[in-house]
């Protein structure tokens, strides 16, 4: 049975997360503090961590760094909308995804499923993407939209490949800039905006209303996956 560790000190949150995750078929572990969370990750081998950034004993980001020091377990961040920089920092530090409070349970469940799928299936199999009419085969370097083959520039392809490899999960601006343009350009967000708009023009049915390449305001981009 898949085991999910919920790290949050707010009793009311625990009160609904636990029955919800249980009802969805997961085994639920609860940690109130960062110290407890680390202990449980080390000893109880959970398959996924839902981590609140505001913990009583220490910063959630530090807990994240400590977990990443010995485990590649998927981690989903619970955070407040007004702490955008913390969110981005957490993603850059190795978190897999994030959910903003307040959230509907369905959203969290979808993120949990995506994260588990990536972790379980491994990177190799994320070489193919087929959703919403867009088909990408990274082995053969083929991109098609509704059966029509698309011509992408090298940069557009690099970006799309990155998104496909992390399909369904958010990728921060920084991660994209670093991969596509190199570490020297992590602050040149304007490059990215131009490239995203070019890519949308090619892969979206209606570039004005993107359905595939979604913007996560202030954080990054996400390639939408049909569950």
């Amino acid at each position: 049975m898949t085991r999910v560790l919920v790290v949050d000190d707010e009793i009311p949150i625990q009160r609904f997360l636990k029955p919800a995750l249980t009802a969805a078929g997961y085994e639920v572990l609860i940690a109130d503090t960062g110290r407890e969370a680390l202990r449980l990750v080390a000893t109880s081998a959970p398959d996924l961590v839902v981590l609140d950034l505001g913990l009583p004993d220490r910063d959630g980001k530090d807990v994240l760094v400590d977990i990443r020091a010995f485990s590649q377990i998927p981690i989903i961040i619970l955070s407040a909308r007004d702490r955008e920089t913390e969110k981005i920092a957490a993603l850059d530090l190795g978190a897999d995804d994030y959910v903003e409070k307040p959230f509907a349970i369905g959203e969290l469940m979808a993120r949990v499923r995506t994260a588990l799928r990536h972790a379980g299936t491994g990177r190799d199999e994320a070489m193919r993407f087929d959703s919403g009419g867009l088909c990408v085969d990274l082995h053969r370097r083929l991109v098609s939209r509704d059966g029509q083959s698309l011509k992408l520039t090298p940069k557009e392809y690099t970006l799309l490949a990155l998104l496909v490899q992390h399909a369904g999960r958010v990728i921060t601006h920084r991660q994209i800039l670093s991969t596509v343009w190199g570490p020297a350009h992590v602050d040149d967000a304007q490059y990215l905006r131009v490239l995203i708009s070019q890519l949308r023009n090619k892969i979206e049915a209606d570039p004005a209303i993107p359905k595939l390449l979604l913007t996560e305001p202030g954080v990054g981009y996400r390639l939408w996956v049909d569950d």
Binding site: F16, L17, A20, K101, A104, I105
Partner: peptide
């Protein structure tokens, strides 16, 4: 916090 609990 209360809103998140209620929504959840």
């Amino acid at each position: 916090t209360p809103l998140a609990s209620i929504t959840g």
